[in-house]
Nucleic acid binder design. Structure first.
Length: 101
DNA sequence: GGTCTGACTAGGT
DNA sequence: AACCTAGCCAGAC
């Protein structure tokens, strides 16, 4: 029986280049609805993986706050390198970039 | 084994 | 549109 974290990682790995997914969406696809918080918690424990953690954002299209703001800056840079654009208030258009499996 | 925590969300104001 | 609240539940201790 895979742990909750392993299910989450498996889904995040599927997010294609240039697309984003929300925490709630990842939770649903992982078969664990309403556990969006666990998704973020799982990603927080990542160290050096091939998991595209930066493609996971919150339901409002913005990068979620975390204990260390440096990672938020890095996340935005990584997304911009994939062609995802941000509005001046730091949001991205979910209509355009949300991953629809 | 009870309590606390939290990269969240939906719904109301 | 921004802010608040309750609900959520696997881990950590």
């Amino acid at each position: 029986m895979p742990s909750t974290y392993e299910k989450i990682y498996a889904v995040v790995k599927k997010i294609p280049y240039g697309r984003v997914a929300t925490y709630g969406q990842v939770a649903g696809l992982a078969g664990i609805p309403r556990q969006a918080r666990q998704v973020g918690y799982a990603l927080n424990h990542l160290t050096d993986n091939d998991i595209p953690w930066h493609r996971v954002i919150n339901a409002r299209g913005e990068i979620s706050g975390r204990s260390n703001p440096d990672y938020a800056r890095l996340q935005r840079i990584l997304l911009e390198e994939e062609g995802i654009t941000f509005s001046p208030d730091g949001r991205t258009s979910l209509t355009r970039f949300l991953w629809k499996p």
